[in-house]
Simulated assay, not measured.
Amino acid sequence: MLSKGVWDVKDFQGKTVFITGSSRGIGKEIALHLAKAGANIIITGKTTEAHPKLEGTIYSARDEIAQTGAKVTALALDVRDDAAIQHAMSIAAQEFGGIDILINNASAISLSDTTQTEMKRFDLMFDVNVRASFAASQAAIPYLKKSSHPHILILSPPINLNPKWFKDHLAYTMSKYGMSMCVLGLSEELREANISVNALWPKTTIATAAIQYNFPKEVYQASRKPEIVAQAALCILKQKVTGQFFIDEDILRAQGETDFSKYAVDTSAQLKLDLFLD
């Protein structure tokens, strides 16, 4: 359980945060919130040039975060390349004197059934979701062991074995639960090293490119803004707790939040519950 109390502008002063998939969406929003709370930020992602469908690049995200006054750097990174992950971690640690927090946010999605899932799409989801979470955590551990407030946060769901979450998109479900299994395993493996490892998942769908391009338009309108996930992430990261699977709304309610309408894309739309939550 988290103790009550919201974050303030000094909670992450001087802490260095490495975030995968942070050019846009949830990753960028978490980066912005942490930057405003005093953290040094490492933005990573594949998008280095403007994309016709995807908003932003690692450099536009860097420039936006720099406006908060935070120290920030942008590193081009394909999380499928473990050598590149290790190199990026090394660069970040050299620039900022270490790494205190790793956020495994990068994710690939394909809501297709087994016969419609090409193996290259299967491999992409497992490489970006499971393998990259493992590889980034592995690369970060030596730096986290030197930190006074080490934490790994993985954007993955609580494991729900209701068959309905497997029948329509088996490959995607397995890949996201693989990320969640990293939380279960790493939290125990790293407990003696005092490295916290937790998961965060939104209660509703979040207005990101993944929702925009994989769901009907009405689902996007029935979503919440990434800000709610970022607020919840900071509540988790400021405390020493490990091995937990947190839901964003539940965290903020426990912190005393009562007005969730401010997070809605469209306050007139009925919110859409996210995947893996009954």
Results as ranks from 00 to 15, higher is better:
Trp165Thr: 08
Trp165Gln: 09
Ser261Cys: 01
Thr267Asp: 07
Ser107Ile: 09
Lys120Gly: 03
Pro157Ser: 09
Ala135Arg: 00
Ala70Gln: 11
Asn198Ser: 15
Ile195Trp: 03
Arg253His: 15
His51Thr: 05
Asp81Phe: 12
Gly45Thr: 04
Asn194Pro: 05
Thr20Val: 06
Asp127Val: 05
Ala254His: 15
Ala132Glu: 00
Gln255Glu: 15
Ser133Lys: 00
Lys176Val: 06
Lys120Glu: 12
His149Ala: 14
Tyr172Ile: 04
Tyr213Trp: 09
Leu190Glu: 10
Glu49Asp: 04
Gly178Pro: 08
Ser268Trp: 00
Met1Phe: 13
Ala106Tyr: 13
Glu64Leu: 12
Pro52Leu: 04
Thr117Arg: 11
Val9Phe: 14
Lys28Gly: 02
Ala83Gly: 14
Gly21Phe: 10
Ala171Gln: 09
Ser223Phe: 01
Val241Phe: 00
Lys225Val: 06
Ile195Ala: 05
Leu144Gly: 08
Lys71Trp: 02
Asp113Ser: 14
Ile30Gly: 13
Val241Ser: 04
Val265Ile: 15
Asn162Leu: 10
Glu64Ser: 15
Ile211Glu: 05
Lys176Met: 05
Thr48Gln: 07
Leu54Arg: 07
Arg121Thr: 15
Val197Leu: 06
Pro158His: 09
Leu275Tyr: 10
Tyr59Asn: 07
Ile42His: 02
Asp11Cys: 13
Ser268Glu: 11
His51Ile: 03
Phe122Asp: 09
